[in-house]
Amino acid sequence: MEQAGPGPTNHSEGFRAALAQWRLSLRTEVKKASSLPTAMFDACDPMLETRLADSAEAMLACLQQPADHLRDRSPAAELRLETVTLAELAALPRHVAAVDVGPLDLRTGLQAEYLGILTDAACTATGPARHGAVQLLQRDFALDAQTDAAALSAVLVRAVRDLPADAMTEPTAALLATACQRLAAALALQADAASGEKTVP
């Protein structure tokens, strides 16, 4: 752990102290880089060391200054802007025409999507959201605590049958088995709550 000790008490002093230290280091480096013995500096020109250090500092400052065209940027120009090449723009008509856009149905996959979301909410949500999801599973998919595992699995298969095979991160059977177990538990929990019985942990 860093020891507390004398040091800058605010950001402003810290900044000034750092700058003074940097200048001292620069002068030391100038002396070290020179072929003249240290004593010659003072003998030849007492100000030589200072001027050399100032020149080095000025050069470094120039290197750190942004070019004019960068300094003049407006605030908007400082915000990130995604780069798009002319070649990418030129390819757009080809991209657009590459796939035949036949008739489209906005309702495609709605039931499977709905079932998947209700299952997710019944198994992962708490409180009113879980309660609402289970009620909708009962109402719209005829699932309840009495539904056996095979029937539950048959319903859940409908939720995933439209997915491409590589969309499954685990084997389908394993995913379905887990989902069935958790959904059965959620349905049972709701049934218990409805009948006022205590659930067995």
Binding site: L110, G116, V160, D162, A167
Partner: peptide, 8 residues
């Protein structure tokens, strides 16, 4: 919990 294919 189960992968979902989004609707249209």
């Amino acid at each position: 919990l189960l992968p979902i294919a989004p609707s249209g």
